[in-house]
């Protein structure tokens, strides 16, 4: 029993990196979800704005572009982390 527990602890220690990566993937996904929600909200706002309000539309467009870039960055990071985990498993 004691040996089993010791082996489990050694396994956890060696697996620490992969656990950190899994945690990072999870938290990035959470942020991505919130960004997606914000993107929808901003798109709806933009749709509701009259064409004449060019300045406000520009501001919203900037916010949307930034969210798009951040989401892309996040997705790339998740892909990279998944790839690295896969390589370790192989």
């Amino acid at each position: 029993m004691k040996l089993k527990k010791l082996l489990e602890q050694v396994g956890d220690f060696l697996d620490a990196d992969s656990k950190t990566q899994a945690k990072e993937i999870k938290s990035i996904r959470k942020v991505l979800k919130e960004l997606k929600k914000k993107e929808h909200k901003l798109k709806a706002e933009l749709k509701g704005l009259p064409k004449a309000e060019e300045e406000a539309r520009d501001e919203l467009q900037i916010k949307l572009d930034v969210i798009y870039a951040q989401r892309k960055k996040g997705l790339d990071r998740v892909r990279e982390l998944k790839q690295s985990r896969k390589e370790k498993d192989d």
Binding site: I28, I62, D65
Partner: peptide
Amino acid sequence: LDDDSSSLTLDKQEISQLVDEG
């Protein structure tokens, strides 16, 4: 701020790129 979400912050180059694209 969640620590990991800071990895999504855009750096100077990415910001310049966005301005260029705009």
